[in-house]
């Protein structure tokens, strides 16, 4: 109970918000973007934060999920759920085949390889216009139904996205506290040391890469159905960078860090819009200030500070009790 206390509070807030404000623009419209970005950031954090493997191509898997949903439902007339399954299959095969050779690389080389992957997938979306509709994308996806229950309003989508996001967060928290999570941390710390302790590092890395890709893929499918539209731009290299920024901003290696990072990066542009032309400047300045003064990430820094203060207080109490 205590281990997941934060998660319960977080779920409660997420699920109560739309009940209190069902018609609020920031909850049911911006909220959808926030929720999907949280899922993506949390899944990327599994790879980047826990396993220490940088990926600049996460948007590719997100895009593949979205495009499979769009292509298989519209061009080939499959049901949305079959299309999602196909998407998962494609992403599974692609990420599994790629994971071994790609994850042999380290540091900048790994970044380059994943970057290449992201760009190749994006070029495919733009250029293969017979299949993907080219730069204009594909519109008119059918409505997604869950157990015969059509998801057709922003409010219903909020709950679908929220549920998916909460499951992702829960999985991520549980992985971190499991044997697999500790193996990942070991890989993050030192691969050679991890191998010495009998961890099959190649397998561990490849597994988490595939897992994180699959979450992004489902997120993509849901996103496509909610938007009713896909175009290459939503899955460009810049979105991958945005996701990396979310993870780093909140704090690498912490699930809730990714949550906080995604929340801030998705909501800030909406709030800063009132500054019009200065929006981008202020946005950049805020990011800079956070990264300069709290390099370990916003959430992690605050958490550490609180823990430090609590420890000081405890020390004082012990000192008082003994004297």
């Amino acid at each position: 109970m205590k281990r997941l206390l934060g998660f319960y509070i977080f779920s409660f807030i997420t699920l109560v918000l739309p009940i209190l404000f069902p018609d609020n623009y920031y909850v049911t419209v911006v909220g959808l973007t926030v929720l999907i970005n949280i899922s993506l950031a949390v899944s990327l954090n599994l790879l980047m934060g826990y396993a220490g493997q940088i990926s600049l191509g996460h948007a590719a898997f997100f895009g593949l999920g979205a495009y499979s949903s769009a292509i298989f439902t519209i061009k080939y007339g499959f049901s949305p759920w079959t299309a999602i399954t196909f998407g998962l299959l494609i992403v599974f095969l692609l990420s599994y085949i790629l994971s071994r050779p790609i994850l042999k690389l380290k540091g900048h080389y790994l970044a380059m390889a994943t970057l290449g992957l992201g760009i190749i997938v994006h070029i495919f979306f733009v250029q293969a216009d017979e299949i993907t509709g080219g730069p204009d994308g594909i519109s008119g996806l059918p409505t997604l139904s869950i157990f015969g229950f059509p998801i057709d309003t922003d409010l219903k989508w909020y709950f679908v996205f929220a549920l998916f996001m909460l499951i992702t967060v829960l999985l991520s928290l549980n992985i971190a506290d499991s044997r697999a999570g500790r193996a990942l941390s070991a890989v993050h710390g030192s691969e050679i040391a991890a191998q010495m302790m009998g961890i099959d590092t190649a397998k561990v890395k490849s597994r988490i890469f595939v897992f994180s890709a699959l979450i992004a893929c489902i997120a993509g499918s849901l996103f496509a159905h909610q938007q009713n539209f896909v175009s290459p731009e939503s899955f460009s290299f810049f979105f991958s960078i945005e996701l990396v920024t979310m993870v780093v901003l909140g704090g690498l290696g912490s699930t809730f860090g990714a949550v906080v990072g995604a929340f801030i990066l998705s909501i800030l542009p909406e709030l800063l819009i009132v500054f019009e032309d200065f929006e981008v400047l202020i946005f950049g300045a805020i990011l800079m200030v956070i990264m300069i003064f709290l390099p370990e990430g916003l959430f992690v820094a605050i958490k550490n500070k609180i823990a430090y203060l609590a420890f000081k207080r405890y020390q004082k109490e012990v000192a008082n009790a003994t004297s």
Binding site: Y25, D136, G137, S139, G140, D154, N228, F229, S231
Partner: peptide, 23 residues
């Protein structure tokens, strides 16, 4: 949903317009 406008004029490029037609 926020500004609750009566009419929309815009969508400079075809890509931008096609993206919002469903909405």
């Amino acid at each position: 949903k926020k500004d609750r406008v009566d009419v929309i004029i815009g969508g400079t490029t075809s890509g931008n317009t096609l993206a919002v037609i469903d909405i």
